[in-house]
């Protein structure tokens, strides 16, 4: 089942065509990797999906509903979760409180001035933290967590709204190899079990070729290849503009 459908997306900045005529789709339970050299248009593409940048042309449909013109907030409410390239969490709160904030927002309780925030949805938050393996660290302040653990917290936060689509911008940037694989395995597991569609950008080719179900390659704002990892890896054009000889 197609969760996200992108058709003929285009965006220009001051005369430079950052993205031109890009179309692809992501299905439920599928991990789709978006790769390409710096400046290929990955970030622009990503930001057009989550409402930060308005495209010049084309359509973005989530479960058959257009996302164009919606704010990041509205898109999140429809069921699109996201993680950031550089982790963004609430540093002055504990791990549990971070997830509680997402739950409070999901249940539209953010304006309550009478409830006690720390007592709201604590059980639900712990259940989500257990799913990402962070239950033991629930009471630690986010500001002192290790990087890989912050990424897990972000996953738990993203899951709080029961999303059907997860957007992950360079999820494993800055992590050691073993951590990378653990995080992506977790993401894959959550996706398959919950039928969540996952779209991620990534620079680490080990991660891409181990965990992605499908890969799309952008270069110069255009989609130059699409397919299963092995086929993309063998593609001559992809090797030339991006992968190189494969030694590095």
């Amino acid at each position: 089942m197609t969760v996200l459908a992108i058709r003929n997306l285009a965006k220009a900045y001051g005369g430079v065509q950052a993205v031109r005529d890009v179309s692809f789709a992501v299905a439920a339970g599928e991990l789709l990797a978006m790769i390409g050299p710096n400046g290929a248009g990955k970030t622009t593409c990503f930001n057009m999906l989550n409402g930060q940048v308005a495209p010049d042309a084309g359509s973005v449909e989530f479960e058959g509903r257009s996302l164009l013109g919606l704010s990041p907030r509205q898109i999140w409410r429809l069921g699109v979760g996201r993680t950031f390239q550089i982790t963004a969490t609430f540093g002055s709160m504990t791990v549990r409180e971070n997830v509680q904030m997402a739950l409070l927002s999901h249940h539209r309780r953010l304006w309550s001035m009478t409830a006690l925030a720390t007592r709201s949805f604590a059980g639900d938050a712990d259940a989500l933290l257990a799913r990402v393996g962070m239950r033991e660290q629930a009471d630690r302040p986010c500001a002192v967590l290790a990087y890989g653990d912050l990424k897990r917290v972000e996953l738990a936060v993203a899951l709080a709204s029961r999303p059907r689509l997860l957007l992950m911008d360079e999820p494993t940037a800055g992590m050691a190899p073993r951590e990378r694989n653990e995080l992506m395995q977790l993401a894959a597991e959550l996706a398959r079990r919950g039928g969540i569609a996952v779209l991620f950008t990534e620079h680490d080719m080990d991660v891409v070729f181990t965990h992605a179900d499908r890969v799309i390659v952008l270069s110069g704002g255009e989609l130059i290849a699409e397919g299963p990892p092995d086929a993309v890896r063998a593609d001559a054009r992809v090797r030339e503009v991006y992968l190189g000889s494969g030694n590095a």
Binding site: N38, E170, Y242, G244, G246, A248
Partner: peptide
């Protein structure tokens, strides 16, 4: 120095 760079650029860095 290789963080966040495309593989072709990483080769240049080597």
């Amino acid at each position: 120095p290789s963080e966040g760079l495309a593989p072709v650029i990483v080769e240049q860095m080597v």
